[in-house]
C-alpha cells in the first residue's frame, strides 16, 4: 500500500501549493493541470494490479472525499458535522478548485461547481478506472484469459 501513501503525500502538498498559488491568478490553473498529470502518472503504475487491489487503493486514497460528500448529502447531521461537511469537501478537493472556478454556470439556483464537488468522488473514481485500465499490460482476472489448447 505504498502507493496510497504516495497519493496522500502528493494530494496534501498539492492542496497547499495550489491554495497558495491562487495568490498568483493563472498559476493555480497551471498547477491544477500539473496535479492531474502527476496523479495520472502515479495511478498508471497500478496497471498491473488486480481490479480488487486497485479499488482498495482508490477507496483508501479518496476516503475523506467520499465521507465529506456523503455527509453533505445526508438529510440529518452527526455531531453538527453536516454544517461543515461541504466546507471540508471543498478543502479536500482544493487541487481541482482552480479548474472548477473556470465553470460559471448556475443550475436550479446552485452553481455548477456545487454539483461537481458533490460528485467529485465519482469523477475521481471514473478517472481512476480510465487511468488504470488504459494501462493494463495483462488482463486483471486469470479466468478471463484466453487459454491456448495444448
Amino acid at each position: 500500500m505504498k502507493i496510497v501513501g504516495r497519493l496522500y503525500f502528493i494530494h496534501i502538498f498539492a492542496w497547499l501549493a495550489i491554495w497558495l498559488a491562487t495568490y498568483y491568478p493563472g498559476l493555480d490553473v497551471v498547477l491544477a493541470f500539473a496535479y492531474l498529470l502527476i496523479i495520472f502518472l502515479q495511478i498508471r503504475s497500478l496497471g498491473d494490479e488486480s481490479g480488487g487491489r486497485a479499488a482498495a487503493v482508490f477507496l483508501a486514497w479518496q476516503a475523506p472525499g467520499i465521507v465529506f460528500s456523503v455527509l453533505s448529502l445526508l438529510p440529518w447531521s452527526f455531531w453538527g458535522l453536516k454544517e461543515y461537511a461541504f466546507f471540508l469537501l471543498m478543502f479536500w478537493y482544493t487541487p481541482v478548485v482552480p479548474l472548477l472556478s473556470l465553470l460559471q454556470w448556475v443550475i436550479a439556483g446552485y452553481p455548477l461547481y456545487y454539483f461537481l464537488l458533490l460528485a467529485m468522488p465519482l469523477i475521481y473514481g471514473l478517472l481512476f478506472i480510465i487511468f488504470v485500465f488504459t494501462h493494463r499490460k495483462q488482463p486483471a482476472f486469470s479466468s478471463s484469459r484466453i487459454r491456448c489448447p495444448p
Binding site: 491554495w19 491562487t22 495568490y23 498568483y24 491568478p25 493555480d28 466546507f87 471543498m90 478543502f91 478548485v97 482552480p98 472548477l100 472556478s101 473556470l102 460559471q104 454556470w105 448556475v106 452553481p111 455548477l112 461547481y113
Partner: peptide, 15 residues
C-alpha cells in the same frame, strides 16, 4: 454564480 472559497486571497477575480 462564481466560485466561493472560504480562504480566498485578495488577488484575482475568479475565486
Amino acid at each position: 454564480g462564481e466560485l466561493f472559497y472560504p480562504v480566498a486571497f485578495r488577488p484575482g477575480e475568479r475565486i
